[in-house]
Simulated scan of single mutants.
Amino acid sequence: MKADPAVQRRLLDLAQVDAELARVTHRRRTLPEIAEIAEAEKQLRAKQDAVTTIGTSLGDLNREVKRQETEIDQVRAREERDRKLLAGGSVGAKQLTDLEHELATLNRRRGALEDDLLELMERREAVEADSRHAQVELDKAQEALSDAARRRDGALADLESTEAKRTAERTKVSAGFPEPLLALYDRVRAHKGIGAALLQSRRCGACRIELDRSAMSRVKEAAADEVVQCEECDAIMVRTGESGL
């Protein structure tokens, strides 16, 4: 394939634009915010699980406290009934003895229940403190995720703006190339990543490999308008005064 040397040199401008577009693509895939968001989501799930677990424990304690309070109320009601019977003076000696015994038993029972209730309420107070702390940690995790997402979206917006500018620039730069030359360039770029590069000081600018003596001889013998490709990476090697020929 042949192309005017000046046209071949313009491939370097196209390659520079494509390199910038490739950097945008790479940057989009490797934004640090992406990994940060993944970690923030992991932390958020852990904090949500903690809140749920503590909430379940708190709910169990609330039910236990309510059950204990109900049982205490029942004992108190029984005590009140027995006291009224005693105060009424209408019971016989045997029933009086039974009521006094029952009152003593109820009093001990109520004392034990109240002790248990106090312990339950202390436990509930501790779990409520844990719940408040877990909620604070959850709020922090949610804010960290939101912050990372905002920064990611901002970075993506900048990349999209850069990509749009470079894409428009590429359309303008590539407009004047002969179709066969542009097709070759695009095909090599699609497979190798770089379509054209400067041959500088006997070294291919795409793969950075120095040409051996025989390869350099073939390049020197090629006509100025001959499109020369690197034997290692297939990139079009643009020849200038810097090529060392």
Rank of each mutant, 00 (worst) to 15 (best):
residue 6 A to V: 12
residue 10 R to Q: 15
residue 13 D to S: 13
residue 13 D to K: 11
residue 17 V to G: 00
residue 17 V to C: 08
residue 19 A to C: 04
residue 25 T to S: 13
residue 26 H to P: 00
residue 28 R to K: 11
residue 28 R to V: 10
residue 28 R to T: 13
residue 30 T to E: 14
residue 33 E to I: 01
residue 34 I to G: 00
residue 38 A to C: 02
residue 42 K to N: 14
residue 45 R to N: 11
residue 45 R to I: 07
residue 48 Q to H: 05
residue 48 Q to L: 13
residue 50 A to D: 12
residue 52 T to G: 05
residue 54 I to F: 06
residue 54 I to C: 02
residue 57 S to H: 09
residue 58 L to A: 11
residue 61 L to C: 03
residue 61 L to N: 03
residue 64 E to G: 03
residue 64 E to K: 06
residue 66 K to R: 09
residue 68 Q to S: 14
residue 75 V to D: 00
residue 77 A to T: 09
residue 79 E to I: 10
residue 80 E to G: 05
residue 83 R to P: 01
residue 84 K to Y: 10
residue 84 K to G: 11
residue 85 L to N: 04
residue 90 S to W: 03
residue 91 V to L: 14
residue 99 L to R: 01
residue 100 E to L: 12
residue 103 L to E: 08
residue 103 L to W: 05
residue 104 A to H: 09
residue 110 R to S: 06
residue 112 A to E: 15
residue 113 L to A: 03
residue 117 L to D: 06
residue 117 L to G: 05
residue 119 E to W: 07
residue 122 E to H: 10
residue 123 R to V: 08
residue 126 A to L: 13
residue 132 R to A: 13
residue 133 H to E: 15
residue 133 H to Y: 08
residue 134 A to P: 03
residue 135 Q to G: 06
residue 138 L to V: 00
residue 139 D to F: 07
residue 142 Q to K: 05
residue 147 D to K: 09
residue 148 A to L: 03
residue 153 D to Q: 06
residue 153 D to N: 06
residue 154 G to T: 04
residue 154 G to N: 12
residue 157 A to N: 08
residue 158 D to T: 11
residue 159 L to C: 02
residue 160 E to N: 12
residue 161 S to M: 07
residue 165 K to G: 03
residue 169 E to M: 04
residue 169 E to C: 00
residue 170 R to W: 07
residue 171 T to N: 11
residue 174 S to Q: 14
residue 177 F to Y: 09
residue 179 E to R: 11
residue 180 P to E: 10
residue 182 L to N: 02
residue 183 A to M: 05
residue 187 R to N: 13
residue 188 V to E: 06
residue 188 V to T: 07
residue 190 A to K: 10
residue 191 H to W: 02
residue 193 G to P: 01
residue 194 I to Q: 08
residue 197 A to V: 04
residue 197 A to E: 12
residue 199 L to E: 04
residue 203 R to L: 08
residue 203 R to H: 04
residue 203 R to F: 03
residue 203 R to W: 02
residue 208 R to S: 13
residue 212 D to M: 03
residue 214 S to T: 11
residue 214 S to Q: 13
residue 216 M to Y: 02
residue 217 S to W: 10
residue 219 V to F: 12
residue 219 V to T: 06
residue 220 K to H: 10
residue 220 K to V: 11
residue 220 K to I: 11
residue 222 A to P: 00
residue 227 V to W: 12
residue 227 V to S: 09
residue 228 V to T: 10
residue 229 Q to R: 15
residue 231 E to Y: 04
residue 231 E to W: 07
residue 233 C to R: 02
residue 233 C to T: 02
residue 233 C to K: 01
residue 235 A to C: 05
residue 236 I to S: 05
residue 236 I to V: 15
residue 236 I to E: 09
residue 240 T to L: 11
residue 242 E to V: 00
residue 243 S to I: 06
residue 244 G to D: 07
residue 244 G to F: 07
residue 245 L to N: 04
